[in-house]
């Protein structure tokens, strides 16, 4: 059980760090609160869309800034879109660079635009790396699905109060300790419900 607590603590610390560094803002919390049983992968889905869109937009921006005669309206439209989607997922630092980027666009400041593109690329890859670390598992997801389901049931049964169950599931799975943890938790859960039935616990 110690290592479960330790892993959870790591997850909590890591998430808190992302907020402290201003990489994420409260909008990301809202995203997590929107996730529910009817759509347990909502956060990962939205963030994946964000990655796809951002990469397309960053490519478009790089191309547009290389042109002989720069189309600032087009650039502004791309940056506007990136600003919108980054603010929707709470990627605060990407969003902030977008604001500066749009100002440079308005001033038709090519050097400023190029600098902003580098900055926004940097901030984007930072938030991407951090979010991927948070989600790590994508791709392996199908593999342990039935176990994940049981894990979820056990977690509910034992009234685990986790910030985001799917995140912690992924975290455990990522650490390669999933089954071990699952069995431990199951034993504890059974023990717990047995005690509850016997009236030893009223928790």
């Amino acid at each position: 059980m110690d290592s479960v607590i330790q892993l959870q603590r790591q997850l909590v610390d890591y998430t808190a760090q992302l907020f402290n560094e201003g990489i994420l803002d409260d909008q990301f919390n809202q995203l997590q609160q929107l996730q529910d049983e009817s759509n347990p992968d909502f956060v990962v889905e939205v963030v994946t869309l964000f990655f796809e869109d951002s990469e397309r937009l960053l490519n478009e921006l790089a191309k547009a800034l290389e042109q002989q005669s720069v189309d600032y309206r087009k650039i502004d439209a791309h940056v506007h879109q990136l600003k919108g989607s980054s603010s929707s997922i709470g990627a605060q630092r990407v969003q902030k660079v977008c604001i500066a980027f749009r100002n440079c666009c308005e001033d038709r400041n090519i050097e400023g635009c190029q600098k902003c593109l580098q900055q926004v690329k940097h901030e984007y890859s930072l938030v991407k790396t951090k979010l991927e670390t948070l989600f790590k598992v994508r791709g392996k997801k199908g593999k342990n699905k039935s176990n994940l389901f049981r894990m979820n049931t056990v977690a509910q049964a034992t009234d685990f109060c986790l910030y985001d169950r799917s995140l912690s599931r992924r975290f455990w799975q990522q650490e390669g300790q999933f089954l071990g943890q699952y069995n431990k938790v199951k034993t504890i859960a059974e023990d717990h419900s047995q005690r509850k039935q016997n009236g030893i616990l009223d928790m």
């Binding site: 919390n29 609160q33 529910d36 509910q156």
Partner: peptide, 12 residues
């Protein structure tokens, strides 16, 4: 531990 930090957080 979980409750103290994330009281309003659980989606369910």
């Amino acid at each position: 531990y979980g409750r103290a930090i994330f009281a309003p957080g659980t989606s369910s």
